[in-house]
Simulated scan of single mutants.
Amino acid sequence: MIELTKLNGQVFLLSAPLIEQVEALPDTTITLINGKKMVVKESKQEVRDLANAFYRRIGLIGLTVREEGV
């Protein structure tokens, strides 16, 4: 789960695997796999970072990225 903030200031938890798409329209809009859209205060990059941190915590992505040729 990742913690996000609605435009009205309400903090909520969102299950990261439900995220299908994140757009800046200019407000950050998250489209879930069921088609529901949510608008949040966090930037697109912040949502990405939170989702990546979640996947690292549960072991679905590595902690480091190897550069080609290293």
Score class of each variant (00 low, 15 high):
Leu4His: 02
Glu68Ser: 07
Thr31Ile: 01
Leu63Ala: 01
Tyr55Met: 02
Ala16His: 12
Ala24Phe: 04
Ala51Asn: 02
Glu67Thr: 09
Ala51His: 06
Leu14Asp: 00
Arg57Cys: 06
Glu20Gln: 13
Thr29Phe: 06
Lys6Pro: 01
Gly62Thr: 15
Thr28Leu: 15
Ala51Lys: 00
Thr29Arg: 11
Leu4Asn: 05
Met1Lys: 08
Ser43Pro: 06
Glu3Leu: 12
Arg56Glu: 13
Ala24Gly: 09
Met38His: 04
Thr5Arg: 14
Leu60Phe: 10
Ser43Lys: 08
Met1Asp: 08
Val11Pro: 03
Gly59Leu: 12
Leu18Trp: 14
Leu32Thr: 04
Gly35Trp: 00
Ile33Ala: 10
Ser15Tyr: 15
Lys41Ala: 07
Thr28Asn: 13
Gln10Ser: 01
Leu18Cys: 10
Ala24Trp: 12
Leu25Thr: 13
Arg48Asn: 07
Val70Ile: 11
Gly9Ala: 01
Thr31Asp: 04
Lys44Phe: 04
Leu32Ser: 00
Ala51Phe: 09
Lys37His: 07
Glu3His: 10
Val65Phe: 12
Leu7Cys: 03
Ser15Pro: 12
Asn34Thr: 00
Lys44Ile: 02
Glu46Pro: 06
Gly59Asp: 15
Thr31Ser: 06
Ile61Ala: 05
Lys41Gly: 05
Lys6Met: 10
Lys6Glu: 13
Gly35Arg: 08
Leu13Phe: 13
Gly62Phe: 08
Leu50Ser: 07
Phe12Leu: 00
Ile19Trp: 05
Lys37Arg: 03
Leu25Pro: 13
Ile61Val: 01
Val40Gly: 02
Thr31Gln: 00
Ala53Lys: 15
Ile2His: 01
Val47Ala: 14
Lys6Gly: 01
Leu14Gly: 08
Lys44Gln: 14
Val65Trp: 04
Thr29Lys: 11
Gly9Ser: 00
Gly9Val: 06
Ala16Asp: 11
Lys36Met: 09
Leu60Asn: 10
Leu63Ile: 06
Ala53Asp: 15
Ile58Tyr: 11
Ala53Ile: 12
Gly35Ala: 06
Ile30Gln: 01
Leu60Met: 14
Lys44Trp: 05
Glu68Asn: 09
Leu18Ser: 09
Tyr55Gly: 00
Gly59His: 12
Arg66Val: 09
Ala24Thr: 10
Leu7Gly: 00
Thr29Leu: 14
Lys36Ser: 04
Arg66Gly: 09
Val40Asn: 03
Pro17Lys: 03
Ile2Cys: 06
Arg56Ala: 05
Val39Gly: 11
Pro17Leu: 01
Asp27Leu: 08
Ile19Glu: 11
Leu32Tyr: 00
Ser43Trp: 11
Val40Trp: 08
Gln45Arg: 09
Arg57Gly: 10
Gln45Thr: 05
Val11Trp: 01
Ile58Pro: 06
Val65Thr: 13
Glu68Phe: 13
